[in-house]
Amino acid sequence: MEIPDYPNISEWAVPFYIVTMLVELGIGWFTGRVRYETRDTLASLVMGGGSLLAGALTAGAIGTVSLWLYEHRLFTFGFEPWWIVLAFVLDDLRYYWVHRFGHEIRWLWAAHIVHHSSQHYNLSTALRQTWTSFFALWWVVRLPLVFLGLHPAVLAFCGGINLVYQYWIHTEAIRRFPPWFEAIMNTPSHHRVHHATNPRYLDANYAGTFIVWDRLFGTFVPEDDAEPCRYGIVKSLGTFNPLRIALHEWVGIARDATGLSLRQRLGYLIGPPGWSHDGSRKTSADLKREHLRRHPEEAGKPGRPEVA
């Protein structure tokens, strides 16, 4: 069986990234709906370049493990277009779950927090990517699909398309698409919610390409025009230093997990972000509960817990 030579979508997309960022800058200048900040943008782009480099350095190891597992696959799917479509849908489902884990498990969050660390939301934010996803083991969640019988090259191709799709939704220049599109696809509106730190928007809209996964698994929260998104992370960064952006959460984990019992250490490693052994910090669920305590009239609305 001959393996097609799939293009590296991420590399092909680089000119598209640059042109569209310049267009978005122009839109921002003329309409005021988009905002860039020089050092924030530079930090995001440096993180993106570093992520490309980290990906190139670790691709061999991931490829080796994946190809070994593929040799022991359960089924054999071909390279025909319909299998590519199936692979894309399954890989998008895989993305939903690993992305969700990335917000709910601190070890994975330590890598993913980079992408959320800008207080801006523009196309450069899309490129603010982690350098440590290999170390955080994000790639492991794709292995079940390989074991199922989807070739690693097909999955890499689908993953590339998925990432490029997610690029253009990082913008405030586009408000809403027609309802049918918003119902099926991940859009700028849905993804703005995902990047927001407003309590009601926390831990929502994990989708890559298809928002249907969030609707299916109960994590969908629509954007409410009455509550504008505040972007970033709950504990905003006070630096543009790329090394600190890349590593600050890992340093935080190391400090938190020192000198404690095994159970407490595990809590800091695999508990949700904000978990602490002495209850001195707040998880997303805590923040939602506290918000609801202050605003009981909002109980039951999307993104809010049912009871305080």
């Binding site: 680089v14 000119p15 640059i18 310049l22 020089t38 943008t41 530079l42 370049g49």
Partner: peptide, 13 residues
């Protein structure tokens, strides 16, 4: 292309 693009976008801001 990457270095030129980063420079161009940053300069524009």
């Amino acid at each position: 292309f990457v270095i030129g693009g980063v420079g161009l976008v940053t300069l524009a801001t």
